[in-house]
């Protein structure tokens, strides 16, 4: 039971992180290919993004309890510090992104473009990729 519980938590954690990274990268690619993206799609992405992000953080706490964490002065500990700092950066940049989408949802336009939103989705994708790589360092050393 102990083992299966943590396998479940880690599975949800990895699947959630994969969903966040994949969907952010997908929206960025949509911006690159079509120049404009449906406001409805962006709003749905944002409404999905936050609960999944919370689930990833929540299951991350389960991982800490189940598998422990290295002391802060070790390489794995430093990687964990950088990972948490990047997560805080993702939270702040995602608030900016969501506020922008909220503003666009208030207008009559059905599709939006612009370099600002495109860069924010790109930043989210790249930052999440760095977090995933750091998670590998934290887990396997």
């Amino acid at each position: 039971m102990f083992g299966s519980e943590y396998v479940l938590i880690r599975s949800i954690h990895v699947l959630g992180a994969g969903l966040l990274f994949g969907s952010s990268a997908l929206v960025w690619l949509l911006f690159l290919s079509d120049r404009t993206v449906s406001v409805r799609l962006l709003t749905q992405f944002e409404i999905l993004f936050w609960p999944v992000f919370a689930l990833v953080v929540f299951t991350g706490m389960g991982n800490i309890v189940g598998f422990g964490v290295a002391p802060p002065e070790t390489d794995a500990g430093i990687a964990f510090t950088v990972k948490l700092t990047l997560l805080l950066v993702i939270v702040c940049s995602s608030v900016i992104r969501s506020v922008l989408v909220r503003q666009r949802a208030d207008t009559d336009r059905s599709r939006v473009g612009g370099s600002g939103l495109r860069r924010l989705y790109a930043a989210t994708g790249w930052l999440l990729a760095m977090v995933v790589l750091l998670a590998g360092v934290v887990t396997y050393g």
Partner: peptide, 20 residues
């Protein structure tokens, strides 16, 4: 939908930010 997004964004960002 915009109002729901605002509540989910602010509420979740605070909970996640404080926890991290």
């Amino acid at each position: 939908m915009g109002r729901v997004l605002e509540i989910v964004t602010v509420g979740t960002a605070v909970a996640v930010g404080v926890t991290i």
